[in-house]
Simulated scan of single mutants.
Amino acid sequence: MSETAIDKQRVADSFSRAAATYDQAAAFQRSAGSNLLARIPAQLQAHEIVDLGAGTGYFTRALTQRFAVAAAGLDLAEGMLRFARQCNGSEHALLDRQPRWVVADAEALPLRPASQDLIFSSLALQWCPDLARAIAEARQALRPGGCLAFNTLVEGTLFELQRAWQSVDAFVHVNRFMPSDELRQILAASGFSHWRCDLETHVLRYGQLGELTRELKALGAHNINQGRPGGLTGRARLRALTQAYEAFRQPEGLPATYQVAQILMFKES
């Protein structure tokens, strides 16, 4: 099995385990996704819609309601989709049009060429080992004039946690994210007729470091990079990490910064 396949399985397993706790810890994720949804032009006519990396289905349902069509929720994490189906069958049972749920890999989409009007993906494609391939798959699935709307985390995300860990040991404890310049190069080479990439900074505040680490665990956003430490983290290292992170404390609390690229791409008509 390749390293890429191992990483994808690790991502899928991590998010599947977090399905039941994800929504309670996903305030930032919903804010970033709502900002992306608001960027989609009001005049866009979409009859076939995919939510790629649907997770628990929050934005799959939002897309279904906005466009009055049954969106399809695709995700690599089968556990997330099981939770989405259960949620859709109870809390959202009154929807006129029910979303569809499909286990799928963004780098090998089970979609017919030129079959989709809108592919929406919020904070999912940063987990793809080959972002360019995922974008190419989306472009192939879009009809002429179709839109790929996605956001992704870029370099600078959780830099406070990264720097605090660097003062403790040489392991990789925080997921690495693509520099924004590299991202723009991939977008420019994608073959889309036109695109736009805007950067947003979100700063979350916490009273104690443990609140942040528990939230990351609840979200399933574990460290998947090579060079990560094995086994449990000892108490002495955790104390050292906590002390190092305290250097970032502000009157409002301990900051955790997320850098989000909000992207709209349109296929040639």
Rank of each mutant, 00 (worst) to 15 (best):
P179D: 12
A134S: 14
F159I: 11
R133N: 08
Q98H: 13
E107L: 05
H173A: 09
A188F: 00
D130M: 06
L161G: 11
Q126M: 06
P179Y: 09
A124R: 02
E155P: 06
F192L: 12
G146R: 04
E182P: 02
D198V: 07
A136C: 08
L111P: 02
P129Q: 04
L148N: 09
A188C: 05
D181G: 13
R184P: 00
C128E: 01
A141F: 09
L111I: 11
S193N: 12
G146P: 03
H173V: 07
L125I: 05
W101H: 09
R112N: 11
T152A: 11
D169G: 12
G156E: 06
F120G: 00
Q98G: 03
E155Q: 15
L187R: 05
E182G: 07
P113W: 08
P144A: 04
A114E: 15
S121F: 03
A104R: 03
Q140C: 12
M178T: 15
D117F: 13
M178S: 09
A106R: 00
M178K: 09
L123T: 08
E107T: 11
N151W: 08
L183Y: 06
T152L: 15
D181K: 11
R196N: 15
W195C: 11
D117C: 05
L161K: 08
D130H: 10
A106I: 04
M178L: 15
A141R: 00
A104Y: 02
